[in-house]
Design a protein around this nucleic acid. Structure first.
Length: 345
DNA sequence: AAGCCGGGGTT
DNA sequence: AACCCAGGCTT
């Protein structure tokens, strides 16, 4: 039996009933694919429902305020996906009359749509014979065909794409693409794959070489950078505080946070008491105290944020202050959302 | 070609 | 603590 036929057969009996599997609507498929980039199905699914409910059609998403989109995206991470999602919705409405492009090549021009996502939409919605090569596919192909090229090297990317084209099922690419990904997610898992019940084990090179655990090969590891965040949570006599929007190219662009004092190392109370009032534009006699006794270490994939929240209580009435009660309306990073949820004066 | 961009689940 | 997740963009 051929590889692709086994994948198709396996998919037929093992596929999950996922919310985006009952439609071929490009809007819904696109939305699900963007949300699932580097994101597990279980984590993305609630967001898919929220978005479909808030924005049933691409026009609804295009017409929404960016801040509303970011707020709905809050907690899902990689927030550039939300900004690109919104931009692409506008393009689809304005340039394509509300209809998504129907070819891999044209889909590739959309913001936030790369090789994988263009292939996924083209194959699932339009049955175009282009293979998806995501993390699941790298794993399945590297093991079954014994490919030990690093999956994140330029040669590896090229060779795995060639192999993926060679072994795909062009006549039923829609099910094959979803099938090989589902197979990677459920059967050929990163750790402890279920090789005993695997329909491909007899001809799987890695299984027969006992090299399952060493495939796929991936280069380098991300070095974690340590940063020290001091958030200044000012509270004035009217229960107002200050928030600001992050700019630049770093983390959490366009999300909101409290005024931030970043330092190379830990900062102590006297230093904060001295600099906070002027930085916030409040009176010198403001009362400053540390809210969290121990550092909150917020872990991103490439940064550890050692965070202290400082409460700055002042009699000054903030001119640009916002009521504390409105904080839940702002799109914020999880680090800030967690604080807001527990903060009681 | 390499680095950056989140948050959460598994082991 | 390390690894990975239905990757893409920037430099």
């Amino acid at each position: 039996m051929v590889f692709s036929n086994i994948i198709l057969a396996w998919y037929g009996t093992n596929k999950r009933a996922l919310p985006w599997r009952n439609t071929l609507d490009p809007y819904r498929i696109w939305l699900s694919e963007i949300m699932l980039q580097q994101t597990r199905v279980a984590q993305g699914t609630p967001y898919y429902h929220k978005f479909i409910s808030a924005f049933p059609k691409v026009e609804d998403l295009a017409n929404a305020d960016e801040e509303v989109v970011l707020k709905l995206w809050q907690g899902l991470g990689y927030y550039s996906r939300a900004r690109n999602l919104h931009a692409t919705a506008k393009i689809v409405v304005e340039k394509y009359g509300g209809n998504f492009p129907n070819t891999y090549k044209e889909l590739l021009t959309l913001k936030g749509v790369g090789d994988y996502t263009a292939s996924a939409i083209a194959s699932i919605c339009f049955n175009e014979a282009v293979p998806v090569v995501d993390g699941n596919v790298y794993r399945v192909l590297s093991r079954y065909y014994g490919m030990d090229l690093p999956i994140n090297s330029p040669e590896g990317i090229k060779e795995f794409k060639k192999l993926a084209i060679k072994v795909m099922a062009p006549k039923n690419i829609r099910d094959y693409n979803q099938g090989i990904m589902e197979f990677g997610a459920l059967q050929c898992t990163p750790q402890k794959p279920d090789c005993q019940t695997c329909p491909l084990n007899i001809s799987c090179i890695a299984y027969n070489n006992d090299s399952i655990s060493s495939l796929p090969v991936k280069l380098k590891k991300t070095k974690v950078k340590h940063r020290y965040f001091n958030y200044l949570v000012v509270v004035d006599a009217n229960n107002q505080t200050l928030v600001q929007q992050r700019t630049g190219n770093g983390i959490w662009r366009q999300l909101y946070e409290f005024p931030l004092l970043e330092s190379d190392q830990e900062v102590a109370l006297p230093e904060v008491s001295k600099s906070a009032p002027e930085l916030l534009g409040v009176q010198e006699d403001a009362e400053v105290y540390l809210y969290n006794d121990k550092n909150i270490v917020h872990k991103l994939s490439h940064q550890h944020l050692h965070t202290k929240f400082w409460i700055v209580s002042t009699t000054t009435i903030l001119e640009n202050g916002v009521p504390l009660s409105t904080l839940p309306e702002y799109p914020v990073p999880v680090l800030i959302a967690d604080f807001i949820n527990t903060f009681k004066i």
